[in-house]
């Protein structure tokens, strides 16, 4: 798969002196769903805004489908659709007018049939004559997506698209994202709902303190950094881990009533079987057991935490 966005050595320091990006290198592949994760102030929006042309770039290069965002900005920007984080709309315009405005602004001739399709896909067709000010927050979010799709972009940036939207809209939105991907649109999203990134994204990038600290296939990341834990409710509490089990990664919790065994998600269940056998040998009985696999959110929190503490 070829790169549709190639960011190399990109830095950005604002006039205030705040450095938002430090030597960012990031390549997004054509047709993938890429989730950019990071805590607040990590540089996600700055990075997206530079690629889209809203913020002046610092040193480094950004190519969009081979087009430099400085030298060949028209070609670069015409390939991009952006749904920003904030609900910024023209309150007094109708849905139909504002979506057609976006299409024209991006240099496309009027195409009522295409705009109708976009509005129908987003369940906005019945609202096309309504002024935007009369719409609910969720509907306004749909309008912003429709505006971003109005010029048939090859790349769609979704900056926190599901922040503050209801469950139904979130589900519709992700269905739309899947549909767009099937049509070959590359999607880059930032989200705080990390489980969505886990479910939707082909690859994940983590940015913290203006630096990309990790880019990985979602599944590989889960396998590589994912942890599993086995929690055993003991029949009788323990005061300490028995010496015969000290070589295992065991922790006592719940005043000695719960034994927690952590292991790599890559390891097979033989480790668990071995643990249970050795517990039996030590005469330790348990009433219940359950396993839990770490989520992408756990991995993300660990990564960012480790970055901050320098581990």
């Amino acid at each position: 798969m070829s790169d549709i966005i190639a960011i190399d050595g990109l830095s950005k320091t604002y006039e205030s002196g705040f450095t938002a990006l430090r030597d960012v290198n990031l390549h997004i592949r054509k047709g993938e769903i890429f989730a950019l994760l990071g805590p607040n102030g990590a540089g996600k929006t700055t990075l997206i805004s530079i690629v889209c042309g809203i913020v002046n770039p610092g040193p480094g290069t950004v190519l969009v489908d081979g087009c430099d965002i400085r030298r060949d900005y028209r070609a670069a920007r015409s390939r991009i659709g952006l749904v920003p984080q904030e609900l910024s709309t023209d309150a007094f315009e109708t849905v139909w007018a504002t979506v057609n405005f976006s299409r024209g602004l991006f240099g496309k001739p009027a195409d009522p049939a295409y705009v109708e399709k976009v509005l129908r896909d987003l369940s906005l067709w019945d609202k096309r004559k309504d002024k935007i000010m009369a719409l609910s927050g969720g509907m306004k979010r749909r309008v912003m997506i429709a505006k971003a799709l109005a010029h048939e972009p090859a790349i769609l940036f979704l900056d926190e698209p599901t922040a503050g939207v209801d469950v139904e809209l979130r589900r519709d939105m992700w269905n739309l994202v899947r549909g767009l991907r099937e049509r070959g649109v590359t999607i880059i999203l930032t989200t705080h709902y990390i489980e969505e990134a886990e479910e939707m994204a082909d690859r994940v990038g983590v940015i913290s303190g203006g630096e990309i600290i990790l880019v990985e296939h979602t599944r590989t990341l889960m396998e590589k950094l994912g942890r599993k834990e086995l929690r055993l409710q003991l029949a009788a509490p323990l005061e300490a881990i028995p010496a015969g089990l000290s070589d295992l990664n065991l922790v006592l919790e719940g005043d000695g009533h719960e034994l927690v065994y952590g292991f790599d998600a890559r390891h097979d269940q033989a480790d668990v079987a071995g643990l249970l056998r050795r517990l039996g040998e030590q005469g330790i009985e348990f009433r219940d057991l359950r396993t839990r696999e770490s989520s992408l959110e756990d991995i993300f929190v660990d990564l960012v935490h480790n970055r901050r503490t320098g581990d």
């Binding site: 809203i54 028209r74 910024s88 023209d90 309150a91 505006k147």
Partner: peptide, 14 residues
Amino acid sequence: FTGTIYEVLSAPIS
């Protein structure tokens, strides 16, 4: 004021 300037700035327009 409304924030919709993002669209003009991100458009392929000189």
